[in-house]
Design a protein around this nucleic acid. Structure first.
Lengths: 329, 329
DNA sequence: CCCTCTTATGTAACCGGTTACACAAAGCCT
DNA sequence: AGGCTTTGTGTAACCGGTTACATAAGAGGG
């Protein structure tokens, strides 16, 4: 690999001049610039980012910490982040925390050691000491924090919307699935739905779950129908659980949405491909990722007026696991 | 942030001694080691990876280049890579190429500039000049290359298995979906299935597609049933397309698997949650990622006996979009 | 013509680790 | 006791960029 000194020697100038050409700052004569540019081209030189980072005391990398990329909601977030960050000239260091504090800490340390310019975290322990003594820009994504700017969707409203949708469409014995207790947005949804159900004239029961894993989703689904066989409306904690419930309901021969309505949460790509296609509360995951990245970049550039909270709206996506409601009633 | 010089000064030793303690090499007196360790602890010092990388001329980062993390097959691969790489003390730099040569080149350059120790690529242009003048260890994943070690699943066999499954279970007018021409493994599957169908006494037709995107999958599904309404068995190019076809078939009121059998490819997590659950040819994506990472790490450590090709077996996952076949016939 | 400002370029310190090399003290052997 | 090896530690060069500072030539103004 050619270095800046090789280029300087070849072009008959000093390294400072080459650096000035590279970064397009300071004075450089037209003739000199041309000669340097040609030499760079000819030697196929590209500057070493590591050396640059060392002197600048920061790299062009951004750390992204996710619970688990294998959960279909997160690739969307990640992609939003990546697209925005890439465009601004940054690159991503990726980590999966698996909700383990040690892995999380481990990655935060990696990020710091590699002098990332900022980090985006979609992890659950937002108020741990982990993030306290870091002087990096940090943005929380799909999570909230008192100490750092956050980008998230309106989970409470999502929960209300889901509950209202089922109530309006005639479910009277609703089962509300409560997501894992340590997952913040799951609790927001739950609270929203709970509030709405409490206000309405319907029976409802709550089924607690402890994870979002695929395999376990099947278990919750089975549990649901043994514990509450008479239920005629389910508010799932997310689309995976929703799809698992749909699967189980069909297996039991229930007619969807006539006998049982189901509503999911997230709007992951595959939810439109289930049959019947899953009605759900959409979170704009890709946009959330983009917003988080934009916000972080603004922080990196030390711009004024940094939003502390960006809440994105959720929306009801009416597909075929809920019944149609007459527009003009 | 404390530096190694701060630690040295505080502990009353030279930087060389601190470095020796950190890396546990060279001679260090027991008493000195203790004092240095305590000082490191007290100052909460952690070494700057960037400085280390600069001197060593290589970082502890590995580049991972994927077509698109949003496609449900890739998170599995990525996770396999991550787990293996993390355990060996490396971290991941991630890029999505979107099958665009420019993005791909861009990321390869980023990897080189950041002095990654190696890279894993699941991109399509494996024999472009892109990879020629790089002197990094490179492993191709879910792709093959003549010039670099590759880890992939037995696509041809998968295609054969899929075709045989439908034939054995009585489909006689089979439609074979041909995936995008530039995606290597898609073509392997196609060739395998084609060979098997050609040998058998069944009618079949081929439907070409150009992408794997969710939205377009629905279009292929519709196209399938307008062009070949009489088909009684579909070999999909992957699970997404398979699920889209299942969805469309159910919408058209077809009875699955009695009237129409469908077989997918990949075994993405959600395929077991469709209803009827999708029969498919499983690729061990997570293991593939792990194998690729292991292989790369072996290359990084300059071990002897590097496999040039690791082919993992595929298997038929018999679920409910195919009919049962009598064991003892 | 002299002074000042702008333009152009080079020298060398610096970022924070790692390590070659030098040096000294202690242990061991004959 | 003298020589050789092992152990312990420090000095300074090095990795490859960036930039503060120095220097000098040319332009412009009175």
């Amino acid at each position: 690999m050619a270095t800046i000194r090789d280029v300087a020697k070849e072009a008959g100038v000093s390294v400072a001049t080459v650096s000035r050409v590279l970064n397009d700052n300071g004075y450089v004569g037209v003739e000199t610039r041309k000669r340097v540019t040609e030499t760079i081209e000819r030697l196929n030189y590209s500057p070493n980012e590591v050396a640059r980072s060392l002197y600048k005391r920061e790299s062009r990398l951004i750390g992204l910490l996710l619970p688990d990329i294998t959960n279909p909601f997160f690739p969307q977030l990640a992609r939003g982040v990546e697209d925005e960050v890439h465009q601004a000239g940054f690159r991503l260091l990726l980590g999966n925390s698996d909700e383990e504090a040690s892995k999380e800490l481990d990655y935060i340390q990696t990020f710091v050691q590699n002098q990332v310019v900022g980090m985006i975290s979609a992890t659950n322990n937002t108020d741990r000491e982990n993030y306290e003594d870091i002087d990096l820009p940090v943005v929380f994504l799909d999570r909230t924090s008192k100490h750092h700017p956050s980008v998230f969707a309106d989970g409470r409203e999502g929960g209300r919307l889901a509950a209202r949708a089922l109530i309006d469409r005639g479910s009277t014995k609703i089962t509300l699935i409560k997501g894992p207790a340590h997952v913040q947005p799951a609790q927001d949804r739950f609270q929203g739905a709970l509030a709405e159900l409490s206000k309405a004239a319907v029976d409802f029961s709550v089924l607690g779950t402890t994870s979002y894993a695929f395999e376990e989703a099947k278990t919750w689904a089975e549990e649901l129908f043994t514990k509450h066989p008479e239920t005629d409306g389910v508010i799932a904690s997310n689309d995976i659980v929703g799809i698992a419930i749909l699967h189980e309901a069909l297996r039991l021969g229930k007619s969807i949405p006539d006998e049982l309505q189901i509503i999911g949460f997230d709007d992951i790509p595959l939810s439109s491909l289930s049959y019947p296609s899953l009605s759900t509360i959409r979170q704009p995951a890709y946009e959330m990722g983009k917003e988080a990245a934009k916000l972080l970049i603004r922080m990196i550039k030390k711009e004024q007026e940094i939003d502390q909270m960006i809440q994105l709206p959720v929306s009801l996506i009416e597909r075929n696991t809920t019944r149609k409601v007459d527009k003009d009633e």
